[in-house]
Design a binder for these strands. Structure first.
Lengths: 108, 108
DNA sequence: TTTTATGTGTAAGGTTTTCTAACACAACTG
DNA sequence: CAGTTGTGTTAGAAAACCTTACACATAAAA
């Protein structure tokens, strides 16, 4: 049963400096992956980025793929494919909201 | 089995502004409760405070008690008592590390 | 009832953190 | 070769934090 799960994992509350520390990536890299639409932090009213633990995990996966020579464009395609696959099959699962938020209709 | 549990809940990665937002408390209050030794954030190398989700929960409990007229001093006593009770009984449990870190020997 | 302690607000001045934009460049890719 | 990718770095500005201090209404203690 266990309902929606407020889960800390997906709450966007971590600033980029901490993310840098936790992932070992440079802020430049983190922002660049956002530019390439691989990651979608929230923002404070003032404009500072806020990430979740999920985002951090995702960033580390991205970093691995990049190291393996995979390009951001390809990574994005994979992610979109994965999301679609999940939409069809597991139609109401946890990660759902996560990915939906990221690849859904970007409210410009 | 399930070992130590890296758990996001206790990782100190949230800055005070976000804590303010999540708890509804003012930064002044949050810092004051620290001064009264009710909460123990980590610090970045630069000196900014970092809190965990546990800290946030704790802060909300504190806020409730304060509203009920309980003084910070009493709250602290309660917390110390609770910690001791747990030390005796549940001798190696999750929350352990959490509380220990907070009420253990403060390395001045 | 004076005196002291508690809990918060607010202001000042100073650092740290973050942001965007731009230039540079090596290593690919087409 | 011309264009793209992924990062570093710099520069200037804005946001977020920090500490210290003064004020003050309440509440607790002497």
């Amino acid at each position: 049963m266990a309902a929606a799960e407020s889960s800390y994992k997906d709450k966007k509350v971590i600033t980029i400096g901490i993310v840098r520390e936790l992932t070992g990536l440079s802020e430049r890299q983190i922002r660049y992956y956002e530019e390439r639409k691989l990651i979608f932090p929230d923002r404070t009213p003032g404009g500072s980025r806020k990430y979740s633990f999920s985002d951090i995990e995702l960033l580390m996966e991205i970093a691995n793929k990049i190291e393996d020579g995979v390009q951001t464009y390809e990574i994005r395609q994979e992610m979109i494919r994965e999301k679609r696959a999940m939409d069809k099959k597991t139609h109401h699962k946890m990660i759902q909201g996560q990915l939906n938020a990221q690849f859904g209709i970007q409210k410009r």
